[in-house]
Design a protein around this nucleic acid. Structure first.
Lengths: 147, 147
DNA sequence: CCCATGTCAGGTCCACTGACATCA
DNA sequence: CTGATGTCAGTGGACCTGACATGG
């Protein structure tokens, strides 16, 4: 049989496990978003826009962990599909504040429900307290790395 | 200033935090491996081979979360650079067991030390007990997702 | 026969880097 | 001038599908 199943002794490495978990999660979310014609970055952008209307291209890029160049392409696609809208000219500076359209809000609702199910499945073996601990520890990992 | 810094209220989502942590970690490890002329997938392959000599292409692919086609390309590169070696003919079946060369072992030692530093920095705000908890919870997240 | 493996090919997707103009 | 932004262009990595030969 295969020597690599689960539990190479690399699972003593937090980094390896982190990568694995993120990878499995990405695949799972991808799978539920694909039938909706959406990928993770597009979904993340819509979710961010719902919570913080008027975010600019660069701000969305930072919020979804991609470059502003990549986000530019994403936004062009979302705009083409009528899910978001941006003013033709910048009201101030070069920043173009982006808004969800009614259609975008509708699609997001569907996608959001699907993604929430995945996340619930991921947390199904964790109680509320552990979820909070997990978030706390991940935040501290991020802080540590950015030092 | 930017409205997106740290702490959009999405950090109540484990999934979002997980993606962010993995993203920051990837960037950090990339940064230390780049000067060594290595990327994360190559490093992961060498690390796996050090712990489990003789892994095949397909097994390495599963262990690093890429397809066997992608791993095939990676191995060709590592072989060309003299970091790994594979027999010309399969000793049994079609499986070609891969081995680290002395050079590969040497490069891995350097890379491994660099990566370990990053991982230590990531865990700097966690005590031993918390690290174990984090691993445990990540493992349960993976199990939950694969159900 | 069925399945896993190693490998090659073609096409696609996605994110990145580089570069440039614009504006506070 | 500096720094942030929006955007265009090119590049690279990893994916997928398909294919085929080989071996348990």
């Amino acid at each position: 049989m295969s020597q690599v199943e689960r539990g190479v002794d690399l699972d003593s490495s937090v980094g390896y496990l982190l990568k694995q978990t993120a990878s499995v999660l990405q695949v799972a979310i991808d799978a539920v978003l694909r039938p909706l014609g959406m990928n993770v970055t597009q979904y993340s952008s819509l979710e961010l826009l719902a919570q913080r209307p008027g975010l600019s291209n660069s701000e969305l890029a930072r919020g979804t962990f991609v470059t502003r160049q990549s986000m530019n392409v994403v936004l062009q696609g979302l705009e083409r599909d009528g899910l978001v809208s941006r003013p033709v000219v910048a009201p101030v500076g070069r920043v173009l504040p982006t808004q969800l359209t009614p259609l975008g809000r509708e699609r997001l609702a569907t996608a959001s429900a699907a993604v929430r199910k995945v996340e619930d499945r991921m947390r199904s073996d964790l109680d509320t307290n552990e979820s909070a601990q997990l978030r706390s520890m991940l935040n501290r990992c991020i802080d540590g790395l950015q030092r």
